[in-house]
Amino acid sequence: MKSTQTANPFQGVGKMNRLNNRVFTLLVWIIGAAAILFIFGLLFLILEAGLPNLTWDFLFGLPSEIDEGGGIGPTLINSFYILGISLIIAIPLGMAAGIYLAEFAPDNKLIGFVRICVEALASVPSIIFGLFGIALFVEFFQIGLTILGGAVSLAFLNLPVLVRVTEESLRAVPKELKSASFALGGTHLQTISRVLIPAALTGIVTGICLVAGRAFGESAVIILTAGVTTSGEMWDFNLFSPGATLAVHLWYVQSEAIVPDAQQIAQKAAAVLVFVVLFINLVFRIPLWLKARKMKG
């Protein structure tokens, strides 16, 4: 007598899918763990070589051209100074352009071409912006290699990234929030400032973190627009002074300097550079953590 039961045609497929899912999950865990271990290993090697040997004399001392024992004081101050000026210029312009493209720009071929241009500029090598800075500040305005030229060139470098990050973060906000704001009588400006920007703040701050870290460690743009030297003063805020930064000083010491302790200076400067970039990311993340904690409370 034949059995009336029929085999489930999806039984074998289900087992294979579960096996593939487990294999894929294991593969993702392995790759993720390997990437994290590599990053932590790289950070450990850099910080372990230079961080224990740091002194206040090194952090706030003047660089030396011949004698050993020079510091990084002026270059460290210039790094923060140029970074601050570039962010003051880039953040308002980048956010304004991103808000315009996300909320006000018409959906036509011209705006589509503008988006393509912005994306292309975001991937252009930094040395191209350095060459643009030379053409603008050194040749056209004839002000030489200055802090001002370096800061504005860095702002140009970071501007396309901030525009795209702001636009995409605003577009990622659920449309229901925007509709609810309009339904409650909010104007377009109120909706953007009180609903869309707070909801997209995590993505915007992440973009600012990325460009700030990139700007602090940038060397090609600074070499071409601000030079490889400083004014020799510790606290020189003259915008028309030479503006070598810590990244430039690290490159110079490693490749051109003749001081006997060039290797030790490079190791300590690299440790400071990595530590400051991590600190910048932490500082920008603190408001997001406070906001998340406030929402949970």
Rank of each mutant, 00 (worst) to 15 (best):
136 L>W: 11
196 L>K: 08
127 I>W: 06
260 P>K: 08
202 T>F: 00
294 K>D: 03
9 P>C: 02
184 L>E: 13
155 A>P: 05
67 D>N: 15
183 A>Q: 04
238 N>V: 02
132 F>H: 01
295 M>T: 08
163 V>M: 14
192 I>D: 09
151 A>R: 01
206 T>N: 15
254 Q>D: 06
106 P>M: 05
207 G>D: 08
218 E>N: 10
296 K>W: 00
247 A>R: 00
203 G>W: 03
11 Q>Y: 11
14 G>S: 12
10 F>N: 12
103 E>G: 08
114 V>G: 00
224 L>Q: 09
88 I>E: 06
72 I>N: 05
37 L>Y: 10
9 P>I: 06
168 E>F: 02
297 G>Q: 12
96 A>L: 15
47 L>P: 07
294 K>F: 07
154 L>E: 07
2 K>L: 12
26 L>E: 07
22 R>S: 10
140 F>Q: 12
94 G>E: 08
32 G>D: 03
127 I>K: 04
292 A>P: 00
86 S>N: 06
41 G>A: 04
278 L>E: 06
37 L>M: 13
159 L>H: 00
122 A>Y: 08
96 A>S: 14
24 F>A: 13
286 I>A: 10
117 C>V: 14
49 A>S: 14
227 G>I: 08
22 R>E: 12
171 R>H: 13
12 G>H: 04
207 G>K: 05
172 A>Q: 06
99 I>K: 01
2 K>P: 15
31 I>K: 01
266 A>C: 09
133 G>A: 05
